[in-house]
Protein backbone atom coordinates (compact mmCIF):
# COMPACT_ATOMS: atom_id res chain seq x y z
CA UNK A 1 0.00 0.00 0.00
CA UNK A 2 1.16 3.47 -0.86
CA UNK A 3 1.50 6.26 1.66
CA UNK A 4 -0.71 8.63 -0.22
CA UNK A 5 -4.46 8.10 -0.23
CA UNK A 6 -6.44 7.61 -3.44
CA UNK A 7 -9.64 9.18 -2.20
CA UNK A 8 -10.26 11.74 0.53
CA UNK A 9 -13.85 12.24 1.57
CA UNK A 10 -14.66 15.30 3.65
CA UNK A 11 -17.95 16.03 5.42
CA UNK A 12 -19.98 14.38 2.72
CA UNK A 13 -23.69 14.97 3.28
CA UNK A 14 -26.66 14.06 1.17
CA UNK A 15 -30.22 15.16 1.84
CA UNK A 16 -33.21 14.12 -0.22
CA UNK A 17 -35.15 17.33 0.28
CA UNK A 18 -35.63 17.47 4.04
CA UNK A 19 -34.91 13.78 4.48
CA UNK A 20 -31.43 12.70 5.47
CA UNK A 21 -29.56 10.27 3.23
CA UNK A 22 -26.17 10.34 4.90
CA UNK A 23 -24.34 13.00 6.87
CA UNK A 24 -20.82 14.13 7.67
CA UNK A 25 -18.98 11.17 6.25
CA UNK A 26 -15.21 11.48 6.47
CA UNK A 27 -12.64 8.91 5.45
CA UNK A 28 -9.54 8.32 3.38
CA UNK A 29 -9.05 5.35 1.12
CA UNK A 30 -5.56 4.12 0.26
CA UNK A 31 -4.48 2.27 -2.88
CA UNK A 32 -5.02 -1.46 -2.52
CA UNK A 33 -7.39 -1.01 0.37
CA UNK A 34 -10.87 -2.45 0.61
CA UNK A 35 -13.38 -0.55 2.68
CA UNK A 36 -16.68 -2.12 3.68
CA UNK A 37 -19.73 -0.07 4.51
CA UNK A 38 -22.14 -2.08 6.63
CA UNK A 39 -25.44 -1.31 8.25
CA UNK A 40 -29.08 -2.24 8.13
CA UNK A 41 -31.52 -1.36 5.37
CA UNK A 42 -32.18 2.36 5.26
CA UNK A 43 -28.99 3.25 7.10
CA UNK A 44 -27.74 5.32 4.17
CA UNK A 45 -25.05 2.99 2.86
CA UNK A 46 -26.38 2.81 -0.69
CA UNK A 47 -26.90 6.60 -0.72
CA UNK A 48 -23.31 7.00 0.37
CA UNK A 49 -22.09 4.65 -2.35
CA UNK A 50 -24.13 6.40 -5.05
CA UNK A 51 -22.80 9.75 -3.91
CA UNK A 52 -19.21 8.53 -3.77
CA UNK A 53 -19.48 7.06 -7.25
CA UNK A 54 -20.80 10.42 -8.50
CA UNK A 55 -24.20 9.07 -9.44
CA UNK A 56 -25.73 11.52 -6.97
CA UNK A 57 -24.75 15.12 -6.21
CA UNK A 58 -23.99 15.60 -2.51
CA UNK A 59 -25.77 18.37 -0.62
CA UNK A 60 -22.45 19.44 0.86
CA UNK A 61 -18.94 18.16 1.33
CA UNK A 62 -16.37 16.97 -1.17
CA UNK A 63 -14.57 13.89 -2.38
CA UNK A 64 -11.03 14.44 -3.62
CA UNK A 65 -9.67 11.81 -5.98
CA UNK A 66 -6.06 11.38 -7.01
CA UNK A 67 -6.21 11.16 -10.80
CA UNK A 68 -3.79 9.09 -12.86
CA UNK A 69 -1.71 12.21 -13.44
CA UNK A 70 -1.40 12.59 -9.63
CA UNK A 71 -3.51 15.75 -9.52
CA UNK A 72 -6.21 15.97 -6.85
CA UNK A 73 -9.68 16.70 -8.19
CA UNK A 74 -12.99 17.10 -6.42
CA UNK A 75 -15.14 14.59 -8.29
CA UNK A 76 -18.21 16.80 -8.00
CA UNK A 77 -16.45 19.64 -9.78
CA UNK A 78 -15.38 17.60 -12.79
CA UNK A 79 -17.17 18.38 -16.03
CA UNK A 80 -19.70 15.78 -17.07
CA UNK A 81 -17.41 14.56 -19.85
CA UNK A 82 -14.49 14.15 -17.43
CA UNK A 83 -16.66 12.43 -14.86
CA UNK A 84 -18.10 9.98 -17.35
CA UNK A 85 -14.65 9.24 -18.69
CA UNK A 86 -13.36 8.64 -15.18
CA UNK A 87 -16.24 6.31 -14.31
CA UNK A 88 -15.67 4.10 -17.32
CA UNK A 89 -11.89 3.94 -17.21
CA UNK A 90 -10.42 4.45 -13.76
CA UNK A 91 -13.49 3.30 -11.82
CA UNK A 92 -15.78 0.32 -11.83
CA UNK A 93 -19.22 -0.21 -10.42
CA UNK A 94 -20.51 -3.68 -9.62
CA UNK A 95 -24.27 -3.66 -9.16
CA UNK A 96 -26.13 -6.06 -6.95
CA UNK A 97 -28.32 -7.07 -9.87
CA UNK A 98 -26.02 -7.95 -12.79
CA UNK A 99 -28.74 -6.93 -15.27
CA UNK A 100 -28.19 -3.32 -14.15
CA UNK A 101 -24.53 -3.43 -15.00
CA UNK A 102 -24.54 -5.61 -18.11
CA UNK A 103 -25.97 -5.24 -21.57
CA UNK A 104 -28.19 -8.27 -21.55
CA UNK A 105 -28.76 -8.31 -25.32
CA UNK A 106 -25.15 -8.36 -26.48
CA UNK A 107 -22.67 -11.20 -26.13
CA UNK A 108 -20.36 -11.72 -23.16
CA UNK A 109 -17.37 -10.75 -25.30
CA UNK A 110 -18.96 -7.46 -26.30
CA UNK A 111 -19.89 -6.78 -22.68
CA UNK A 112 -16.26 -7.10 -21.67
CA UNK A 113 -15.04 -5.25 -24.77
CA UNK A 114 -17.40 -2.28 -24.48
CA UNK A 115 -15.14 -0.27 -22.19
CA UNK A 116 -12.17 -0.90 -24.47
CA UNK A 117 -14.12 0.31 -27.48
CA UNK A 118 -15.32 3.30 -25.45
CA UNK A 119 -11.74 4.40 -24.90
CA UNK A 120 -10.92 4.01 -28.56
CA UNK A 121 -9.70 0.44 -29.16
CA UNK A 122 -10.57 -0.33 -32.77
CA UNK A 123 -8.90 -3.70 -33.29
CA UNK A 124 -11.40 -6.57 -33.19
CA UNK A 125 -8.80 -9.29 -32.67
CA UNK A 126 -7.17 -7.51 -29.75
CA UNK A 127 -10.49 -6.71 -28.10
CA UNK A 128 -11.53 -10.34 -28.40
CA UNK A 129 -8.24 -11.63 -26.99
CA UNK A 130 -8.56 -9.30 -24.03
CA UNK A 131 -12.17 -10.41 -23.51
CA UNK A 132 -11.11 -14.07 -23.61
CA UNK A 133 -8.36 -13.41 -21.11
CA UNK A 134 -10.79 -11.73 -18.75
CA UNK A 135 -13.44 -14.41 -19.09
CA UNK A 136 -10.74 -16.89 -18.10
CA UNK A 137 -9.78 -14.83 -15.08
CA UNK A 138 -13.37 -14.81 -13.83
CA UNK A 139 -13.72 -18.53 -14.59
CA UNK A 140 -16.15 -18.32 -17.49
CA UNK A 141 -15.47 -20.92 -20.19
CA UNK A 142 -14.02 -19.50 -23.41
CA UNK A 143 -16.76 -21.10 -25.51
CA UNK A 144 -19.36 -18.88 -23.82
CA UNK A 145 -17.82 -15.71 -25.25
CA UNK A 146 -20.49 -15.31 -27.93
CA UNK A 147 -23.42 -16.15 -25.66
CA UNK A 148 -25.65 -13.47 -24.25
CA UNK A 149 -25.65 -13.01 -20.47
CA UNK A 150 -29.34 -13.92 -20.56
CA UNK A 151 -28.26 -17.53 -20.89
CA UNK A 152 -25.89 -17.26 -17.91
CA UNK A 153 -26.57 -18.29 -14.32
CA UNK A 154 -26.70 -15.62 -11.61
CA UNK A 155 -23.16 -16.32 -10.47
CA UNK A 156 -21.79 -16.24 -14.01
CA UNK A 157 -23.54 -12.95 -14.70
CA UNK A 158 -22.01 -11.44 -11.59
CA UNK A 159 -18.55 -12.67 -12.61
CA UNK A 160 -19.09 -11.30 -16.11
CA UNK A 161 -20.03 -7.95 -14.61
CA UNK A 162 -16.81 -7.96 -12.64
CA UNK A 163 -14.75 -8.75 -15.75
CA UNK A 164 -16.51 -5.98 -17.66
CA UNK A 165 -15.56 -3.50 -14.96
CA UNK A 166 -11.98 -4.58 -14.50
CA UNK A 167 -10.96 -4.74 -18.17
CA UNK A 168 -9.73 -1.14 -18.29
CA UNK A 169 -7.58 -1.65 -15.19
CA UNK A 170 -9.52 0.65 -12.87
CA UNK A 171 -7.95 1.76 -9.62
CA UNK A 172 -11.18 2.08 -7.66
CA UNK A 173 -14.18 -0.24 -7.75
CA UNK A 174 -17.51 0.35 -6.07
CA UNK A 175 -19.56 -2.72 -5.20
CA UNK A 176 -23.15 -2.71 -4.06
CA UNK A 177 -23.94 -6.03 -2.35
CA UNK A 178 -21.87 -7.97 -4.90
CA UNK A 179 -22.94 -11.33 -3.49
CA UNK A 180 -26.58 -10.48 -2.78
CA UNK A 181 -29.08 -12.84 -4.33
CA UNK A 182 -26.58 -15.64 -4.89
CA UNK A 183 -26.71 -18.97 -3.11
CA UNK A 184 -24.12 -19.67 -0.44
CA UNK A 185 -21.70 -21.85 -2.39
CA UNK A 186 -21.70 -19.42 -5.34
CA UNK A 187 -21.18 -16.56 -2.89
CA UNK A 188 -18.16 -18.28 -1.45
CA UNK A 189 -16.66 -18.81 -4.90
CA UNK A 190 -17.31 -15.23 -5.90
CA UNK A 191 -15.80 -13.85 -2.72
CA UNK A 192 -12.75 -16.00 -3.25
CA UNK A 193 -12.42 -14.66 -6.78
CA UNK A 194 -12.93 -11.06 -5.72
CA UNK A 195 -10.35 -11.35 -2.97
CA UNK A 196 -7.87 -12.83 -5.38
CA UNK A 197 -8.46 -10.16 -8.06
CA UNK A 198 -8.29 -7.31 -5.59
CA UNK A 199 -5.00 -8.68 -4.29
CA UNK A 200 -3.53 -9.34 -7.74
CA UNK A 201 -4.46 -6.00 -9.25
CA UNK A 202 -3.90 -3.86 -6.18
CA UNK A 203 -7.41 -2.45 -6.49
CA UNK A 204 -9.03 -0.18 -4.03
CA UNK A 205 -12.65 -1.02 -3.40
CA UNK A 206 -15.60 0.30 -1.50
CA UNK A 207 -18.05 -2.50 -0.79
CA UNK A 208 -21.55 -1.95 0.53
CA UNK A 209 -22.98 -4.98 2.24
CA UNK A 210 -25.33 -5.97 5.01
CA UNK A 211 -23.53 -9.30 5.27
CA UNK A 212 -20.81 -9.07 7.91
CA UNK A 213 -19.21 -12.26 6.62
CA UNK A 214 -18.60 -10.56 3.26
CA UNK A 215 -17.07 -7.60 5.06
CA UNK A 216 -14.87 -9.91 7.13
CA UNK A 217 -13.56 -11.78 4.10
CA UNK A 218 -13.05 -8.90 1.69
CA UNK A 219 -12.32 -5.73 3.57
CA UNK A 220 -9.42 -4.29 5.46
CA UNK A 221 -11.41 -1.57 7.11
CA UNK A 222 -15.08 -1.04 7.71
CA UNK A 223 -17.55 1.68 8.55
CA UNK A 224 -20.78 0.94 10.38
CA UNK A 225 -23.69 3.17 9.45
CA UNK A 226 -26.93 3.86 11.23
CA UNK A 227 -29.53 6.49 10.47
CA UNK A 228 -27.29 8.14 7.88
CA UNK A 229 -24.31 8.55 10.21
CA UNK A 230 -21.10 6.60 10.48
CA UNK A 231 -21.21 5.40 14.05
CA UNK A 232 -18.08 3.29 14.10
CA UNK A 233 -15.09 2.83 11.84
CA UNK A 234 -11.87 0.90 12.06
CA UNK A 235 -10.00 -2.20 11.01
CA UNK A 236 -12.47 -4.91 10.09
CA UNK A 237 -11.16 -7.45 12.54
CA UNK A 238 -11.12 -4.91 15.34
CA UNK A 239 -14.69 -3.77 14.69
CA UNK A 240 -16.06 -7.28 14.38
CA UNK A 241 -14.11 -8.80 17.28
CA UNK A 242 -14.39 -5.85 19.63
CA UNK A 243 -17.36 -3.71 18.68
CA UNK A 244 -17.63 -0.58 20.78
CA UNK A 245 -20.97 0.91 19.86
CA UNK A 246 -24.08 -0.80 21.21
CA UNK A 247 -25.55 -0.93 17.71
CA UNK A 248 -22.45 -2.61 16.29
CA UNK A 249 -22.51 -5.08 19.17
CA UNK A 250 -26.12 -5.86 18.30
CA UNK A 251 -25.25 -6.26 14.64
CA UNK A 252 -22.36 -8.62 15.34
CA UNK A 253 -24.33 -10.66 17.83
CA UNK A 254 -27.22 -11.13 15.44
CA UNK A 255 -25.17 -13.14 12.95
CA UNK A 256 -26.68 -16.60 12.73
CA UNK A 257 -24.38 -19.36 13.82
CA UNK A 258 -24.76 -22.82 12.41
Amino acid sequence: MSDEPLLKVKNLTKYYGARLGCADVNFELYPGEVLAIVGESGSGKTTLLSTLSANLEPTSGEALYRMRDESWRNIYELSEAERRFLTRTDWGFVHQNPADGLRMTVSAGANVGERLMAVGDRHYGRIRDTALDWLGRVEIAADRIDDQPRSFSGGMRQRLQIARNLVTGPRLVFMDEPTGGLDVSVQARLLDLLRQLVGELGLSAIVVTHDLAVARLLSHRMMVMKGGHVIEAGLTDRVLDDPREPYTQLLVSSILQV
Binding site: R103, V106, S107, G109, A110, G113, E114, R115, M117, A118, V119, G120, R122, Y124, I127
Partner: peptide, 10 residues
Amino acid sequence: YGLMHVKLYE
Protein backbone atom coordinates in the same frame (compact mmCIF):
# COMPACT_ATOMS: atom_id res chain seq x y z
CA TYR B 1 -19.51 6.40 -29.49
CA GLY B 2 -17.98 3.20 -28.12
CA LEU B 3 -21.40 1.60 -28.20
CA MET B 4 -21.56 1.86 -31.98
CA HIS B 5 -18.55 -0.42 -32.18
CA VAL B 6 -20.20 -2.85 -29.77
CA LYS B 7 -22.81 -3.35 -32.48
CA LEU B 8 -20.16 -3.98 -35.12
CA TYR B 9 -18.31 -6.30 -32.71
CA GLU B 10 -21.50 -8.31 -32.28
